[in-house]
Design a protein around this nucleic acid. Structure first.
Length: 104
DNA sequence: CGCTTGACACCGT
DNA sequence: AACGGTGCCAAGC
């Protein structure tokens, strides 16, 4: 069982209208590989099943899948907003950030 | 099997 | 408040 599998398993349970962070997932899995989590999400072979857009940085900013393509940023943010998440200045309001242990 | 690469986090300045 | 350097660990090559 690779870390990747565990990550996907957890990530797919993120409730709509909420987001979590890379380090939160890492902590929950008893590992400090929060960086690896990022790469795992990037690969994301389970595209629709794992809502990788609901995983953000600990400071609430959205990165990666959107960070490289400015056009994609707005699209993902719009998607999150559509789900009920409030995003201002490219950052998600902390009240929508949930620790993994809270929604599992 | 070892080296490089990050969708990161945590200081210190 | 913003920027940069440092540390961590799994995946890929």
């Amino acid at each position: 069982m690779k870390l990747a599998d565990k990550v996907y398993k957890v990530a797919r349970k993120i409730p709509k209208g909420k987001v979590t962070t890379y380090d939160s997932i890492a902590k929950y899995l008893k590992t400090r590989a929060y960086r690896a989590v990022g790469q795992i999400m990037k690969r994301n072979p389970y595209a629709p099943k794992v809502p990788c857009h609901r995983v953000i940085k600990s400071d609430g900013s959205i990165s990666g899948f959107s960070g490289f393509d400015p056009k994609n940023i707005k699209k993902k943010i719009a998607l999150l907003i559509k789900e009920g998440v409030i995003v201002k200045n490219g950052k998600v309001s902390t009240e929508f950030i949930v620790r993994v242990q809270d929604f599992i």
